[in-house]
Design a protein around this nucleic acid. Structure first.
Length: 632
RNA sequence: GCCUUCGUAGCCUAGUCCGGUGGGGCGUUACCUUGGUAAGGUAAUGGUCGCGGGUCCAAAUCCCGCCGAAGGCUCCA
């Protein structure tokens, strides 16, 4: 679409004769419009109504600057050598006109398909003359294949449009599996579910505070924004990298134990690959796009692509199923709109464990779904997020519920708390059933962590088949599961949870296995440093992270700083301890209460609490005096 | 992306409305202090006032554009 925009004192035009047979009806008389922004407009191959709206929105922004509110849409074919079919062009022109009127712009239009004579007087100011052109999005132009040309809107936005039109009905699933309309549900005792419901349905919030986890992630030197990158691409300091890495290792180990086969797939894919193209069309255009020579690539926004392409080429039969492929994507990329990117909660580059299970039929899928439901809840609780911290939403169609009520009942019984249900009349997405588990933060906002879904479309789209008992090819059902959700988001949830506990009067902390320093040794004086080092070696040999504060500050200040770093065990060591062998341990989870114990008792206590979790050594130098400060 | 608010040293912040030599705290460094469970003392160091343009004799301050953040809208596959 090309538009020549002229801020005019006036324009006079007169239709002379029809140029094409589908020209609109018009009278051959002069029209004069004063003080108007004239839009000479050419509609090109591949243009669509979304683009028409975009163009009008741009014009609107412009009108604001010019303090004008009158436009004339003037069809003007001469701006382009790549015109669309006249019928299509007329439709889009009309869309522009309708949309502009809807937006309250005083809109005039010159007739389409006529040879017209005109006189125009253009204002002299710098903004008076503007030319703009709108090219279709790459996927959209591809999809404008002849057979699809009659489609009303660009395929890329099909999913979005569907969402606009889609009606959902909100219910609560009680533990007996019955559905109660949300208006009738008594939320007493379920305040988080109520907050979550309101977040999902009304989207009603009013907060002016900075998200607590953003301040914490900086202050604790976990992560920070990186101004040198795109928003939502995060910088991880040593402590943060360690935390993130431990979570990655933990989730990966759990999925491996469940039977997921870890694979690795490319970060970028060809826009024009046939399977990918139609999958992309199911989603809003939110990709990072990059050009490499004459190829157009996009960065993956999930692990689906690589795993599906792999499954497409794999040979398997019902005997091997369910087959589970797993990848921890570092990273998945989604170009979320700038206003949506927040701290560690919503990123443009994030780390997502993604496990797909290929199942023979719905029975097998349901069975697998149940196993993974348990897995997800257990993984989260080991990460440090328990059932009180989140709520579940389940989404399905009316028909699915009717047919599989027992199954849904079983899931809700397992969860043991009421579940928010979104019920659709028809299926809009590629899944038949989906649940997501949502953390509710200090601003009463929800963020999805774990999720699983039964995908009934993509096997066909990617031509993924298995051989059944009769030797015939069949399409499997595909389950998509992220047992923990994005790793960054887990950290967000842990920080928000810690903040909440602080507000409730507790000492905020991370789970022990994720604490960068688990034990801090504070010598009373430099002369004990040698002893400290011995002690630290003894503790470290049990895979416990210990460090030594050898800085020049006072004892009290060192304790204060250790507390501010959320160190779980702080040990002051002087003459007394070295002589008696009894350590005086300040225990954070007991609000700083001091306990006397031997080194062995301390080691046993810590080891017990971190049993079964992955270990990484201290991410920073042993001595605090050797550490740089990453954040003021 | 849109609307609103904000951006002052590594960090927190005063000053901006009403233009006229940018002030404090934390940190860092040095010296003193060698301390028994949440901030010891003194001094030094540190600023293209987010970036670019404009108005003005003069801009952190007023105007325009851009970048970044927060909140709201929208969105979250």
């Amino acid at each position: 679409m090309r538009i020549l925009q002229l801020h005019s004192n006036f324009i006079v035009f007169k239709p002379v004769e029809k140029e094409i047979n589908i020209a609109e009806e018009a009278e051959k008389q002069e029209t004069r419009v004063e003080e108007v922004v004239v839009l000479f407009t050419a509609i090109e191959e591949g243009d669509n109504s979304a683009m028409a709206q975009k163009a009008i929105n741009d014009v609107r922004a412009f009108l604001g600057k010019l303090k004008a509110n009158r436009i004339l849409i003037y069809p003007f074919a001469h701006l382009s050598s790549n015109l669309s079919q006249p019928s299509e062009a007329l439709k889009i022109i009309k869309d522009m006109e309708a949309y502009a009127k809807e937006k309250g712009i005083e809109t005039y239009r010159a007739p389409f398909g006529w040879n017209k004579q005109f006189t125009i007087s253009i204002k002299g100011h710098p903004l008076a003359e503007q030319a703009r052109s709108y090219a279709p999005a790459p996927a959209a132009s591809e999809a404008q294949a002849p057979c699809e040309a009659k489609k009303e809107e660009e395929p890329v936005s099909a999913a979005l449009k569907a969402e606009d039109k889609m009606q959902s009905f909100w219910h609560v699933i009680q533990s007996d599996g019955s559905l109660v309309p949300i208006e009738e549900f008594k939320f007493k005792g379920h305040t988080n579910l109520q907050k979550f419901s309101q977040y999902e349905i009304k989207k009603a919030r009013a907060v002016t505070q900075m998200p607590p986890h953003v301040l914490l992630m900086k202050r604790l030197e976990i992560a920070d924004y990186e101004p040198g990158s795109d928003p939502g691409n995060i910088r991880w300091y040593p402590k943060g990298r360690m935390i993130k890495s431990l979570l990655e290792q933990y989730v990966t180990a759990r999925v491996a134990a469940y039977g997921g086969m870890e694979v690795e797939t490319p970060l970028m894919y060809d826009f024009n690959h046939p399977s990918l193209k139609s999958y992309l069309n199911r989603f809003p255009a939110r990709q990072y796009v990059l050009k490499s020579e004459d190829k157009e690539l996009f960065l993956r926004f999930a692990a689906c692509f690589g795993q599906f392409l792999m499954a497409h080429d794999a040979q398997f039969s019902y005997k091997q199923m369910p087959i589970k492929l797993y990848e921890l994507t570092r990273y998945s990329f989604r170009r979320e709109k700038s206003g949506e990117v927040v701290g560690l909660k919503r990123l443009r580059a994030f780390t997502m464990p993604d496990c797909h299970a290929f199942c023979t039929d719905l029975e097998q899928a349901k069975k697998e779904f149940m196993i993974r439901f348990d897995l997800c809840i257990d993984v989260l609780s080991n990460i440090g997020l328990v059932k009180d911290d989140y709520e579940i939403a389940m989404r399905f169609t009316k028909d699915f519920y009717a047919e599989h009520k027992e199954f849904i009942t079983e899931l809700s019984k397992k969860f043991g708390k009421p579940i928010l249900a979104e019920v659709w009349n028809e299926r809009f997405f590629y899944f038949a059933l989906k649940w997501d588990l949502n953390f509710i933060d200090n601003q009463d906002k929800a963020a999805a962590l774990s999720t699983d879904q039964i995908d009934v479309e993509n096997a066909k789209r990617y031509e993924i088949t298995f051989v059944d008992e009769k030797g015939e090819k069949q399409y499997p059902l595909i389950l998509h599961c992220s047992p923990s959700g994005a790793i960054e988001r887990d950290i967000y949830a842990l920080l928000e949870k810690a903040y909440r506990e602080q507000m409730a009067g507790k000492a905020p902390m991370l789970p022990l296995w994720l604490s960068p320093t688990q034990v801090r040794l504070i010598p009373i004086s430099d002369k004990f440093l040698d002893k400290m080092e011995e002690l630290s070696k003894q503790i470290t040999s049990h895979c416990i992270r210990v460090d030594i504060d050898d800085s020049a500050s006072t004892l009290q200040k060192k304790i204060r700083e250790a507390e501010q770093e959320w160190v779980p065990y702080i040990i002051v060591v002087g003459e007394k301890e070295i002589e008696s062998g009894m350590l005086s341990v300040r225990v954070r989870e007991l609000k700083g209460q001091q306990q006397n114990m031997t080194t062995e008792q301390l080691i046993a206590k810590v080891a017990e609490k971190i049993a079964g979790k992955p270990y990484k050594p201290l991410p920073l130098p042993l001595y605090l005096s050797k550490r740089p400060q990453f954040h003021g």
